[in-house]
Design a protein around this nucleic acid. Structure first.
Length: 883
RNA sequence: AGGCGCGUAGCUCAGGGGUAGAGCACUUCCUUGACACGGAAGGGGUCAGCAGUUCGAGACUGCUCGUGCCUACCA
């Protein structure tokens, strides 16, 4: 006890310094690289990180995603599993290319000026700079990933996996090339997959346009929101059973402005109730019209080019932008008397998910994956091979796979995996193979031109769980860690990514790539809008880290992560978590101030005091709760349980309870239990808040003998069955202490005035309890004197309460405020009376007594008796009191 | 148009057939040798509305209202 005041720690928790130190240590120690030569008898656990965009910055969604994965990994590690968490980044084709193109534009140049090779070089350069950024941010979050296995989707290894998959699918007939209508972004100048199109509801104008019939017998009126596409109309369609148009089917209508003759066809697709029930058909610029065109053998006339301008098929409108052409055409129609009316209308318009431009459907030669066979397998794998949490997403997942259409995988950009297909300049043969062929296998010509397109980013992402582990090679990582244990991600990429990983994983490895898929919330902004890379409404987690510390942020996110619900993050909550960190820090400081070397763990028989037993009992409860919560991905329950234990039980009660002991002969036992509980608490907290727990762990006495906390096993269960009774007695004691405090607070008895109190215990056992705990009782209740006597008479001028059947009396000689005490008693009586009335209503109901479980009825009876007794006692006090 | 979710304390959110919870905010008291990023004690809720199931409903069912998101071939 030489210097009991020195804990060796600063008086407040300082996250910046601690985090910097811990990060550096983790970096050196390589704790998170699993040893493949070691056996993994206790099981393995693996996760592949959802690879963030290389050029991106960490946003709150990443912070949540990383936190949850890290909690799982650290938890599994302390359970003894061999854990691999693979980090990496995604090249994010269009997004990254756009960023670099924007930069080039600022420099007054462009990608075409640079040429393909130089441009791709620039993007790599950009990646080298900003890839470090995202890497640093992952580290800032404290993610226990294995940096020695970091991967990037454009790495040679992963690129080889991409080529292998492409060629195999091509050979199997599951990849094909063809001219189809695709979603075209004229800003990015590339095709997009269906799910890369964002639909937004816009207010537009529905124009009713009159198409005269060729035979002069009248006209047919169509309604359209895109009058400019009429330049490409090649038919008018009506419903076959629509009486209004039955006579017109088979006739021809004359397209205004261009004078083209359009057949009038019948098709059940047409909605009779929309507009006029007559649909203008533009096969080149509307997906459904394309389908109709094929079905009815219609001509396909493209009138909008890849830049979004009217092309030469558009007659006098050629060269105009879509928007300009629309204005001119409407004006011309009106002038020519073809425009019947215009009406405001709301409609859905597709936008590019990367740049926000309006999508133009147009026919284009593209590569596709025939996904149906793959989708069937992916559907069947859930839930048998892969369980989705929460299961409410299963329905959505099925619905998407059931309606899936072929996946357009070619992109007309330069940043990405180039399609491994070559065309022979001489004979035109198409050659698909993993490596560049030296000459044409058909004609032996040596002039071969590689397809200039690259693959959709999600094509390589779909292979991520196995490409990162070394596939197609048979690697030790593949053998040990595939399939991965769980995939943790947000539902916004359920289709882009999760479903496709399942398709590819099942097809190429025969196994679903992950056993569990945990879908977490989206972190939304204050308006409830989702935060995303491209919409620019991100809240910077790094600022929260600066302000409150990483652990505070992590703890908050975990506490918010209730399954299936979105998060609207509030800064106040993060601040609250910071206070929690400080609380923990100071509790540990207190322990260290009272340490004399490293105390041995308490032997079960040595634990005598009821508060020690109570504390250990509560600790066991916490352990089971933690294990169960994390097994079921109930992060919020786990976090909340830890919070309540640390603050509400360990700090508020236990530390206060042992303070008197630490000054006396109870010191060794108190130290032993204190440190046992503190150690285990730190281990339990560690997955959530790794920085502060590591720091405190290393400050514990006897640390040389101890492992790094990240590798310290989950605390073994302690047999506390024999402590149950004492744990119950402890609650009685707490109740009595609280009763005294309440009286003092409500009657404004200043703490400086050390009051006396009288307890009339309800029975001999209670009397024993209070006698035994006299010292703690007086200390915690702030008493100068405590009398315990079942027969004692209460002085008239006193305040009183009943807790657990024990009567607590605080004499108020001299300073009693009669009115206040009377009011207090009345309030208490009213509360008890209300509760008793509720119970009485139940117990007098024969149906309740008859049908409710016996234990419930019994419990309510007992509680009623207790209430009656308490009321009787309080009434006695009240009567004495009022004279 | 379908699908999914949400409406619980002033605010942000947990919970979930058996007497309503947390953080922040609020009120009163307290510089007590871990912590004022603290302590003690309080106030505050017909758990959106209506019906049903049940001995018992914030909780389960249906409907209504409000609100958010996802999907979609309504031109």
């Amino acid at each position: 006890m030489s210097d009991a005041r020195d804990s060796g720690l600063p008086a407040g928790y300082e996250p910046e310094t601690v985090e910097a130190r811990r990060r550096a240590l983790w970096e050196e120690q390589r704790l998170f690289t699993p040893d493949l030569d070691a056996d993994a008898a206790a099981g393995v656990f693996s996760i592949v990180i959802p690879p963030p965009n290389v050029t991106g910055n960490l946003h709150m969604g990443h912070a949540l995603n990383l936190t949850l994965q890290d909690i799982l990994c650290r938890h599994q590690r302390r359970l003894g599993r061999q854990v691999l968490w693979v980090p990496g980044e995604d090249h994010a084709g269009i997004a990254t290319q756009n960023v670099v193109e924007r930069r080039l534009k600022e420099e007054g140049t462009g990608r075409h000026a640079l040429g393909r090779e130089a441009f791709v070089g620039r993007v790599w350069q950009w990646k080298e700079e900003y890839g470090n950024n995202i890497r640093r941010q992952i580290k800032a979050m404290g993610a226990s990933v294995d940096w020695s296995r970091e991967r990037f989707t454009l790495d040679e290894g992963l690129s080889r996996a991409v080529r292998r998959v492409f060629v195999r699918l091509y050979d199997e007939g599951l990849i094909y090339r063809g001219l189809y209508i695709v979603n075209w972004c004229s800003r990015c100048r590339t095709a997009l997959a269906d799910d890369e199109v964002e639909h937004r509801t816009l207010r537009g104008t529905l124009s009713f346009v009159r198409y005269p019939l060729e035979d002069g017998s009248g006209h047919i009126t169509v309604a359209t929101t895109r009058p400019e596409t009429m330049l490409g109309d090649t038919a008018v369609a009506v419903h076959p059973e629509d009486g209004r148009y039955r006579d017109m089917v088979g006739k021809k209508a004359r397209l205004p402005l261009l004078d083209r003759l359009l057949p009038i066809v019948a098709d059940p697709y047409v909605d009779r109730d929309f507009g006029t029930g007559a649909l203008k058909v533009t096969p080149a610029h509307a997906p459904e019209d394309w389908r109709l065109g094929g079905k009815h053998g219609l001509e396909c006339i493209q009138v909008i080019d890849e830049d979004g301008k009217i092309n030469n098929n558009g007659g006098g409108y050629a060269g105009l932008s879509r928007e300009k052409a629309r204005e001119r055409i409407v004006a011309d129609l009106r002038e020519g008397g073809f425009l019947e009316e215009t009406r405001p209308c709301e409609h859905n318009v597709g936008h590019c998910y990367r740049c926000g431009s309006v999508i133009e459907p147009l026919p284009s030669m593209q590569w596709f994956v025939a996904v149906k066979p793959l989708a069937e397998k992916a559907r069947a794998a859930v839930p048998e091979q892969t369980r989705i949490f929460p299961s409410s997403w299963v329905k959505t997942y099925y619905a998407w796979l059931d309606n899936i259409r072929d996946w357009c995988i070619s992109r007309q950009i330069w940043w990405g995996h180039r399609i491994p297909a070559w065309t022979c300049d001489a004979c035109g043969a198409l050659i698909v193979r993993e490596d560049a062929p030296p000459r044409c296998p058909e004609c032996a010509g040596s002039g071969l031109t590689q397809d200039s397109d690259v693959l959709d980013t999600w094509f390589s992402s779909a292979l991520w769980p196995f490409s990162t582990l070394g596939w197609p090679d048979d690697t030790p990582e593949m053998r040990r860690f595939y399939p991965t244990s769980v995939l943790v991600t947000g539902f916004d990429i359920l289709f882009f990514w999760v479903a496709r990983m399942l398709m590819m994983g099942l097809h190429f490895t025969g196994e679903a790539p992950f056993r569990h898929c945990y879908i977490h919330a989206l972190v939304r902004d204050a308006q409830g809008k989702k935060m995303s890379k491209s919409s620019g409404n991100v809240i910077d987690p790094l600022r929260m880290i600066e302000r409150y510390g990483t652990d505070a942020l992590r703890f908050t996110l975990a506490a918010f992560a209730a399954m299936g619900r979105d998060i609207r993050l509030s800064e106040e909550r993060i601040e609250g978590s910071r206070h929690f960190m400080n609380k923990l820090w100071n509790a540990a400081r207190f322990a260290l101030m009272n340490a004399d070397g490293a105390p041995a763990p308490p032997g079960p028989d040595a634990v005598r005091g009821l508060h020690h037993r109570w504390m250990l009992y509560r600790m066991e409860d916490l352990k089971t709760q933690q294990g169960a919560a994390l097994d079921e991905y109930r992060f919020n329950d786990a976090a909340q349980g830890l919070y309540k234990f640390v603050w509400g039980e360990f700090c508020d009660w236990y530390l206060e309870l042992i303070k008197p002991e630490l000054r006396g002969e109870g010191r060794p036992l108190a130290q032993a239990v204190l440190f046992a509980v503190l150690r285990e608490t730190l281990v339990l907290l560690h997955p959530f808040i790794p920085f502060i727990t590591s720091e405190l762990w290393d400050a514990l006495p006897g640390r040389d003998a101890v492992r790094d906390i990240a590798l310290t096993p989950f605390p073994a269960p302690r047999d506390v069955a024999g402590y149950a009774e004492d744990a119950g007695r402890m609650e009685l004691l707490q109740g009595a202490i609280t009763a005294v405090r309440t009286i003092r607070a409500e009657l404004n008895i200043p703490p400086s005035r050390k009051a006396a109190a009288l307890i009339r215990p309800r029975d001999a056992a209670a009397q024993n309890l209070f006698e035994e705990q006299r010292e703690v009782f007086t200390a915690l209740a702030g008493l100068a004197e405590l009398r315990i006597d079942p027969a004692a008479e209460a002085p008239r001028a006193s305040a009183s309460a009943v807790s657990g059947g024990n009567e607590i009396i605080v004499p108020l000689a001299g300073l009693v405020d009669f009115a206040a005490e009377a009011a207090r008693l009345d309030k208490e009586l009213a509360k008890l009376g209300k509760e008793r009335a509720v119970l009485a209503a139940k117990l007098t109901n024969p149906a309740f007594v008859e049908k409710a479980p016996a234990e419930i009825v019994e419990r309510d009876r007992a509680r009623t008796a207790e209430l009656e007794q308490a009321e009787a006692k309080l009434n006695v006090f009240r009567d004495i009191f009022l004279g």
